[in-house]
Design a protein around this nucleic acid. Structure first.
Length: 275
DNA sequence: GCCCAGGGAATCG
DNA sequence: CGATTCCATGGG
């Protein structure tokens, strides 16, 4: 991977196993949108990014070296070599096919609170509506920043009531959002500590929050805390591993279960797969 | 009208 | 334990 900073832009070339569209559109993050010209825009940690991928290179517009190093390098998980998890999938025909299809997916390292809150909203919901609710959450309670609004922090939301969230039209999930915000804001659940815990202990900690079960906890661990062994099971994944492995993902995949899970999910969703 | 959507809590047996 | 039901909302 080569990185050059030129004319205020950050240009990345020689990238292996990375595809911007797959990574931003595989259902792990909800605040990225694609423009007519094929570029993607989003806001992370109050930093706006417009990015676009061409055949041999990736360009982050208006991005200096400091911003790349402190925000995007980590967020896009550019330091990791995905050839190892990809090689794991060669052990199974279906996994290989799914991984082939989404071989440019990286697991984002989103902010823990944003991941937790987003996946609370995701439950029994569909992706377009999830994005809408999160957009209204940011517009109403985030801070104005270049390009839009920040994701509101837990402390801000902890001071609100369910009625205050009416504009989100998030239904029964509102009470879950408020409880999560309170427990995170007063450190009943310390997200930075949870991030450092072994996955099982971390999952138990997160499920202390009202409205957070194992699925939402695992999504938070995987997409917001870098726990690549977390394995969120939605209906698609459940059905897939039921058919493929008779119930559970084999032990040999556990180290990268989360990445493999994302290959399966993306493949199933994009191809409307009927296993 | 019906069904489903990256689930979870409450309440059964 | 496992199975059911309800939860709000919007799109197909």
């Amino acid at each position: 991977m080569k990185i050059v900073f030129k004319d205020g832009n950050c240009i990345i070339s020689d990238i292996k196993h990375f595809n911007l569209a797959q990574t931003l559109d595989c259902g792990q993050a909800f605040r990225w949108n694609q423009c007519q010209d094929g570029s993607w825009s989003g806001i992370v940690k109050g930093t706006f990014l417009k990015a676009r991928q061409f055949d041999n290179y990736l360009i982050f517009y208006n991005t200096d070296q400091n911003t790349y190093e402190t925000v995007w390098k980590d967020y896009f998980d550019f330091e990791r070599d995905y050839s190892l998890p990809l090689s794991y999938t060669h052990r199974h025909k279906f996994l290989e096919t799914a991984a082939d299809f989404g071989n440019g997916i990286h697991i984002l390292k989103q902010e823990p609170w944003e991941a937790l809150c987003s996946f609370i909203i995701s439950q029994n919901n569909n992706i377009p509506r999830i994005k809408g609710i999160i957009e209204r959450l940011c517009e109403n309670f985030g801070e104005r920043c270049d390009g839009g609004y920040t994701f509101p922090d837990a402390l801000t939301l902890s001071k609100l009531t369910v009625d205050d969230l009416a504009a989100l039209r998030s239904g029964f999930r509102s009470k879950y959002i408020i409880d999560a915000a309170k427990k995170v804001a007063d450190n009943t659940v310390n997200l930075e500590a949870v991030k450092q815990m072994p996955t099982e202990e971390a999952r138990n900690e997160l499920t202390k929050i009202y409205g957070v079960g194992t699925k939402v906890a695992d999504c938070t661990l995987l997409f917001g805390m870098g726990h690549l062994d977390a394995f969120p099971k939605d209906v698609w994944i459940k059905r897939a591993i039921e058919v493929l492995f008779d119930g559970d993902l084999p032990e040999q995949y556990c180290e990268y279960a989360g990445i493999i899970q994302q290959y399966i999910f993306f493949y199933a969703r994009e191809t409307k797969l009927d296993i």
